[in-house]
Design a protein around this nucleic acid. Structure first.
Lengths: 173, 173
DNA sequence: AATTTACGTCAGTGATGTTGACATATCTCA
DNA sequence: TGAGATATGTCAACATCACTGACGTAAATT
């Protein structure tokens, strides 16, 4: 059973520096995030390897499915990688027929990304694996846990990025 | 459902449902884990770069500090990487004087790992950065959120690994 | 004495990221 | 219309961090 450090009390904590006393370091939450993330992406990795793909391909495919018609610039802004890094994996996804690029109508410089049928199949397979893991974890917790976890994870995001990310998540599907 | 817990701050952006129906896909929790993890390790990365280190060094240093006297085999089991991968970063940490290897007393084949003074300084700097981020996230949530999040993250860990990991977390420091 | 264990090391490879420079097509604006 | 900005593509070089496979050494175990 994971133990957590007592929640820092704003009234009695250090007033000036925001300094963290060594006793208030939540080692378990730090390490659980490491272990959880490792195993959470580990499952999809095995499936992706069947196709000769890696995590980078997964991320691209995932967000293309989530936001059909996404442009390169928008995808770069989500993934926070360089266009050269993106281009390598995106090119492979296009060449293997998992993702499709359509030249913009309004702006012909843009490339709008869409998943093909097989792209959707693969993405669905991966996302269902992850959903299963999440739903099993939530199944042992109170109904409001999902909300708590979502708020916690949102709180870990860089403040400068948070609003944009939450806007992305809240946008209609 | 009446809200039994007062929502601390609902005005700072789009709401997160975290809602999960059986069989549905919790896209927000999937993506929040990605964004949260990205930013959570992003801070330390910048500090590590000052020393010419990367994430791999961070992980080694972190667990060495958490379990002084750890052996190579134990560290490999935690990190789930090959000894060749570990050896490269560990060698750098030893050569730069952040980690110390002591030959075992009972079993002279073993190498017990310890952080040096500067190793402790660096590790503390990094862990405080992460603690600050976590404590800020928890600060907006109910006191029992930490426990909920810990249980959730533990639930994401591979079942075969979970017991070992929880044992690690529960061990005395 | 033979075998196993713990660790170290050499060599090659692959995935994913980076910086920097340059090309091309298209859009915008004065 | 012509200049400049923008969106994307590409080439080249490089760094980090992972992998497999093979081999070596010292110490423990049987």
């Amino acid at each position: 059973m994971p133990q957590t450090q007592p929640r820092p009390d704003a009234a009695s904590g250090p007033a000036l520096s925001g300094e963290v006393v060594s006793g208030s370091v939540p080692y378990d939450l730090i390490e659980l995030l490491f272990f959880a993330y490792r195993d959470f992406v580990g499952g999809p990795d095995l499936i992706l390897a069947e196709y000769g793909f890696g995590r980078a391909h997964h991320r691209v495919l995932h967000f293309v499915l989530r936001r059909p018609g996404l442009t390169i610039a928008e995808l770069l802004d989500i993934l926070k990688i360089t266009k050269q890094s993106l281009n390598r994996v995106l090119k492979e996804l296009v060449e293997t027929g998992f993702v499709e690029q359509r030249t913009g109508v309004q702006d012909k410089r843009q490339r709008h990304l869409h998943a093909t049928g097989s792209g959707q199949d693969l993405a669905l397979r991966l996302v269902q694996l992850q959903a299963k893991r999440i739903n099993e974890a939530l199944g042992h917790l109170a109904p409001e846990a999902a909300q708590t976890v979502a708020l916690y994870l949102a709180g870990l995001i860089d403040p400068a990025e948070r609003h944009k990310v939450l806007g992305f998540l809240a946008a209609p599907r």
